[in-house]
Design a protein around this nucleic acid. Structure first.
Lengths: 251, 251
DNA sequence: CGCGGAGTTGAAAAAGGTCAATTTACGTGG
DNA sequence: CCACGTAAATTGACCTTTTTCAACTCCGCG
């Protein structure tokens, strides 16, 4: 019904304070990624002109819903976004969790509409890119095109990671290690972090019962792999956890 | 070690008989898809110039292997290609089966190397596209760029299809309906077709024991859903099978 | 005609799911 | 600040599904 990303936007117009745009958006991971790919400053400015800064969204706010007309992709700047679908029995199926620096909406490009829901799990800031416009820009900027190709290509691989049939332990280890690495890539601590999602969400994502998640985490704790207080995780034995996760992650 | 798609190529040079190229490659699904997306004839010619026709490959021949340097994507023109990875215990994990009209190698773009193996299950013909060259062309041809975006976007969705936790019956039904639809989209019969892959491969793809596949198929047959003789499938009750598959496919 | 891989079948075992009961955390209002 | 109510998380007991193991059958092929 609504058309894509419609939530409150920051009033800060990029066009108005363009002198400041680069620093203003220095945490915008997508641009950073492009930059690191060797995109020059001028190109980066072109990109920034078509960015809309969205947020802050609060926990429970939807970025887009299944069936919304697709018109934009978005980079998570802060917070966590959960993507999910609901089957006709109303049961939810979690597709992924998206941390700062990651892009959502890429799975919508081939259709008219978003194929899934995206909801904020905590306070979320986004960079929104009109897809027609970023695609147009991409044909002028080979580096941007390449970056988009890479982002999508990576997502294909990620999606098939948890498709394998692995034990509950392996899946959980892979989940934790995955989070750890992604956070580390953004400069956060790889050993201590918060689970921004509920046990139920984790269970759903890993295709297990919440009870199983609970039991596995408890076992990990008993074995000295991690220490968990509510949603605070501290990885005590990264190496051993990685060994378990290896079966899923492959490296 | 070897560099990507290295198998015997048809000697037919596209450049040599360009007058005939369009009809010659009329079964080349990738081009067809582009055409259907509104790409004009001139653009299509540009595309054909950079195509290499590969094949015929015979069952067991590899299109590329994990770790090969990535340099090209390929559209399946005829036959079936299986993609898979092997974990360090040597166990195989099937990622997908690729029918005529489908593109392989898209999950390699973000890295230097192919992240999986691709092997022919029967006699396979391919169109090979140098990725740097097709990406370059894509920045001149918006329709081609769009088509590549769409292909990759679709693959993200497909990969998460079978990620859900569904019963053995639902997975098998979804697998059969999926094949049926994809074949139908290429003009083949949606009701009668061949399973070009072994039971073991199917089981592996569906993350089940081969025995389970056997049992489920047998049950489907008993219930009048399908009729199966070796690798020949006839769907007897498409509607009911689709109902079962719905839980996985969603529509 | 017999060999061998692929497929099938049955019985037992394991992994994880379900159900039900408790505990804990946390926001609300007294 | 505390008491309460609600939702989430945990725990234990039990159950279902699927896997595993082993034996057997079938079919293609030398």
């Amino acid at each position: 019904m609504s058309s894509g990303i419609v939530f409150p936007r920051t009033d800060a117009s990029i066009l108005a304070d363009d002198g400041d745009a680069l620093t203003f958006c220095s945490t915008c991971a997508f641009s950073q990624a492009c930059l690191s790919e060797g995109m020059d400053k001028g190109s980066l400015m072109d990109l920034h002109v078509l960015v809309e800064h969205v947020g802050p969204l609060k926990a429970g706010d939807h970025v887009f819903r299944e069936g919304d007309r697709f018109d934009a992709i978005a980079a998570v700047r802060a917070g966590t976004v959960k993507t999910y679908i609901t089957d006709r029995d109303g049961r939810e199926q979690v597709l992924g969790f998206h941390l700062p620096g990651e892009v959502i909406g890429l799975n919508a490009i081939h259709g008219e509409h978003y194929p899934c829901n995206a909801v904020a799990l905590d306070t979320v800031m986004l960079c929104r890119f009109s897809f027609p416009r970023i695609a147009l820009l991409a044909s002028r900027l080979p580096n941007l095109q390449q970056q988009l190709f890479k982002l999508m290509s990576r997502d294909i691989g990620v999606a098939s990671l948890f498709a394998g049939d692995h034990s509950a332990d392996e899946r959980m280890a892979a989940f934790l290690i995955g989070l750890s690495r992604r956070l580390a890539a953004r400069g956060f601590s790889p050993r201590r972090f918060q689970l921004t999602m509920s046990r139920t969400d984790i269970a759903n994502y890993l295709r297990q019962a919440p009870e199983t998640v609970s039991r596995v985490l408890r076992r990990f704790e008993r074995d000295g792999l991690v220490q968990i207080k509510q949603r605070d995780v501290e990885i005590m034995d990264l190496e051993r956890l990685e060994t378990i996760a290896l079966a899923v992650l492959r490296h």
